[in-house]
Design a protein around this nucleic acid. Structure first.
Lengths: 113, 113
DNA sequence: TACGCATATTCTAAAGTTCGAATATACTGG
DNA sequence: CCAGTATATTCGAACTTTAGAATATGCGTA
């Protein structure tokens, strides 16, 4: 059984393993939003946003509801927000050690440009 | 700020986004273990295990301590176990909806062989 | 029906991840 | 110093993920 559970958990983490998808999930934590609204709020490319939403849908982290022209997304289970909150605390409780990591991340990003 | 925080969270989720690494973290939840012990317990290839441990180390989810010949690993913060526990509950509270997902995963794996 | 808007899908190239095999490092006991 | 054990790193091939461009679908309204 463990095997399946590991796989399941890994799939969820992987689905959350992209900054844009984190941003989407956090935005949805404040309530249901249309795809268009998310795109505007987060400044995303339409196609790209749609792809990320499709990942979240495939892993069933979000639910979509069609209303006329638009598609409204919401979190399937607010427990996700709980998890993100825990990580925020984790982040702050290790700030100093984390900072060097963030600096590295930024340095890499700059280096790429 | 959000940007960096999203990136940071995404990095952590990604580090957890592999079944083997989940298994390692869960094993470490029961206390410090040597690399060799983990390898044996989880039935991993030595090099593969070492690579996964290196990912966890890079994201600072685990701490390593050298003792003579061996390297002992432990979780940097037990909050990770808390997150995994939450996900276990999540898993069971959506079992029926999840089952079809797991079946698909297995079907894909079979299809690949 | 035809148009326009919102969203999804498909495609391609680039980048990143994974595995196992081979090799390297580093410590211990003889 | 040598051999043996424990762990890490490097390499290449297969696979996956990503972004953006182009295209498709689906709905509402004229």
């Amino acid at each position: 059984m463990s095997q399946a559970l590991w796989q399941f958990k890994a799939e969820i983490f992987q689905a959350l393993g992209h900054p844009t998808r984190i941003a989407i999930v956090e935005a949805l934590g404040k309530g249901e939003q249309s795809a268009g609204h998310l795109i505007e709020k987060l400044g995303l490319e339409q196609a790209n946003a749609s792809q990320h939403l499709s990942v979240l849908r495939a892993k069933q982290l979000v639910i979509s509801r069609k209303e006329g022209n638009q598609v409204f997304y919401s979190l399937r289970d607010p427990v996700l927000i709980e998890v993100l909150e825990i990580l925020k605390r984790y982040f702050y409780s290790h700030v100093s050690q984390t900072m060097s990591m963030l600096k590295e991340i930024r340095a890499e990003q700059v280096a790429k440009k």
